[in-house]
Write a protein that binds this DNA or RNA. Structure first.
Length: 567
RNA sequence: UGUCCGAUGGUGUAACUGGCAACACAAAUGAUUCUGGAUCAUUAGAGUCUAGGUUCGACCCCUAGUCGGACAACCA
């Protein structure tokens, strides 16, 4: 009877995504001597986000799976936008995600000389020319997707003149924008990228690596494919929008006569309740809608890290969403599931009360302090136990008490009994309210001394278990309750007259002062805890020994709020 | 009036490459629980964009269409 099930399981494990299928096919056919070599090629002009994480996991994952290699290469062909700050953050993020490019850190700028040589080859073959038109003129004569373009009047310059002009461009004889080098392909091509694309432009700009060595820079299209070729990349994996560029890359490779990698395109990641474009993320930072690239509400890797996400959870997320070519928008709740799943197993529990209300246990001795024993992680016995002090006056969560509860409410209410986690069963006797506001100031209870955790009597059934913290021993800490940055599933689809910024969630951050059990004082930056019955929290780097700061990573799954909603 | 790509439960990804749609999340129900968490069990939900065709048999192949996306930076 076990046979069919086993078979089923194997099948699931073996099911390949379309890229793996291509690779396995290539390996089988001995393509590139069955070598697998990928690369992650970011432009250092911004911070990496969860979409890049998908690509990183894909590229490094593939080489790991097939015993290959993955390079990290910065496509730094536009010095006006690129900065070392970004290079550093990208390397940090890739490392943090758990990947290693070993000694294969490259830059497209490493290849500038070689690329220049390739351009000269094209010129000599009569396949490239120097064009003196302005950017506007070039754009106007390019035509539209449905209308062919017009030839440049400079298209038929002699090879000698082109060689000379291109050399003088390099030598710095011409001002920015005065001339470009263009490929000579086909102005009537239905593929816009084939209409004599620009190969080199003049930019008298300092480059973060080559300094002032160059004043002409290759366009991305002229650098990317050849860089992959130079690095002997076997499978150049990129996102869908470069599909249209592929014929151009193939043309370059063929005309120059160099090794041809195989480009495979996949659909980029989109996620609900967030934006993913670098431009929009930059705007959020610049306009102060978030505190920075690493604001815990940002979908950036550094933002997720600060929020409290673990590399494992992100890798697992990337694995779970899969790879395909169709457009997709992944529900953030899947990301949230991944971090809960991870933290449930790893995070120690703590009692923290975010919105405290005082409980006085009338029959508990005034000065008595009992050391209660609590399990650190019920999912992992090796995490051990800790002590926490119990006293006559404690705090519980304000919404764990209702004066007039519905019968589905399992928590504290007048005349009802409830268990205090790792302590006693208490019964609510009466409440004390502020005569003016009507707000509850104290809830008076009695405890049953025979029901201390672990005692035989403690097995008595009560409907609910509450977390609590001793008034006397609690530590005040700052807790930042983060929520989704946008209120709309897809902020990119703003209605007429609105932009994504009109859908910012005004409640994406609430700061509260919480009372937490004393064990919290050992918390280290980035350490994760589960606040019992509330959610997962991570220590922010703003935290100090005197003033602890926690970020809410994600709340616990809450089926009670669903019950409430149904009403 | 173009070229390229795509279309499978609410979301995402599969389907031994032509053998009668599965997995994860989300949802529901129950059990269990000193977290309304976790865990376990169970259930519901698509007949694969449409119309034809090939075939004993089509998510898979062919044809035509529909819808969605990408492409007109001296950006990447």
């Amino acid at each position: 009877m076990e046979e069919p099930r086993k078979k089923e399981e194997e099948k699931i494990i073996r099911s390949l995504n379309f890229i793996e299928e291509i690779i396995e096919n290539d390996i089988r056919n001995g393509v590139n001597d069955s070598r697998v070599h990928t690369r992650f090629p970011p432009e250092p002009n911004g911070y990496l986000h969860i979409g890049h994480a998908k690509s990183i996991c894909l590229n490094f994952g593939l080489s790991k799976k097939y015993n290959g290699k993955t390079n990290l290469r910065f496509d730094d062909t536009n010095p006006v936008k690129e900065e070392v700050e970004y290079v550093d953050s990208i390397m940090e993020d890739v490392k943090w995600l758990g990947f290693d490019w070993e000694d294969r850190l490259f830059y497209a700028s490493d290849y500038f000389e070689q690329l220049y040589g390739y351009a000269v080859i094209l010129i000599r073959k009569g396949k490239a020319f120097v064009c003196d038109m302005t950017a506007e003129e070039i754009s106007e004569t390019r035509g539209t997707p449905t209308r062919p373009g017009k030839e440049s009047p400079f298209r038929h310059r002699s090879v000698e003149e082109n060689i000379d002009l291109f050399a003088r461009m390099r030598a710095g004889e011409f001002p920015d924008g005065s001339r470009v080098l263009r490929a000579k392909i086909d102005l009537t091509s239905p593929n816009m990228h084939m209409r004599d694309p620009v190969l080199y432009r003049i930019l008298h700009t300092h480059h973060h690596r080559t300094g002032n060595q160059w004043c002409i820079y290759p366009m991305y299209d002229f650098a990317h494919g050849q860089s992959d070729s130079i690095e002997r990349i076997t499978h150049s994996i990129c996102t869908l929008e470069f599909e249209v560029h592929r014929p151009l890359y193939d043309w370059f490779i063929h005309e120059i006569g160099i090794y041809a990698p195989r480009q495979i395109e996949f659909a980029r990641l989109n996620m609900t309740y967030t934006v993913m474009s670098k431009r929009k993320l930059l705007e959020l930072v610049r306009d102060g809608n978030v505190t920075g690239w690493d604001d815990p509400r940002m979908p950036t890797i550094c933002g997720l890290r600060r929020r409290g996400y673990t590399p494992e959870s992100i890798r697992n997320f990337a694995e779970t969403i899969g790879v395909a070519k169709r457009d997709n928008i992944i529900d953030v709740s899947l990301l949230e599931f991944c971090i809960r799943e991870d933290l449930n197993k790893r995070a120690n529990r703590l009692m923290a009360v975010l919105d405290p209300v005082k409980i006085v246990i009338d029959n508990y001795p005034e000065e008595l302090v009992e050391e209660m024993e609590a399990v650190n992680n019920p999912e992992d016995e090796t995490k051990g136990k800790r002590k926490l002090p119990f006293t006559k006056t404690i705090f519980i969560e304000r919404d764990d008490f209702m004066e007039d509860p519905p019968n589905k409410f399992f928590r504290l209410a007048p005349g009802r009994e409830v268990r205090l986690k790792a302590a006693y069963i208490i019964k609510c006797e009466h409440v004390v309210k502020d005569p003016k506001t009507g707000e509850i100031e104290e809830i008076h209870c009695t405890y049953d001394p025979l029901t201390k955790s672990g005692m035989p009597e403690s097995n008595r059934k009560v409907k609910g278990t509450l977390h609590w913290v001793s008034e006397k021993y609690a530590i005040k800490t700052e807790v930042r309750l983060y929520d989704r940055l946008f209120v709309m599933e897809n902020p990119d689809e703003a209605e007429e007259g609105k932009t994504y910024l009109d859908y910012l969630n005004p409640d994406s951050l609430k700061i509260v002062t919480a009372m937490i059990e004393p064990a919290v004082k050992n918390a280290q930056i980035l350490e994760k805890y589960q606040f019992e019955r509330i959610g997962y929290f991570s220590v922010d780097h703003d935290s100090t020994a005197q003033n602890l700061v926690f970020n809410r990573v994600v709340s616990l799954k809450d089926s009670w709020s669903k019950v409430e909603k149904v009403k």
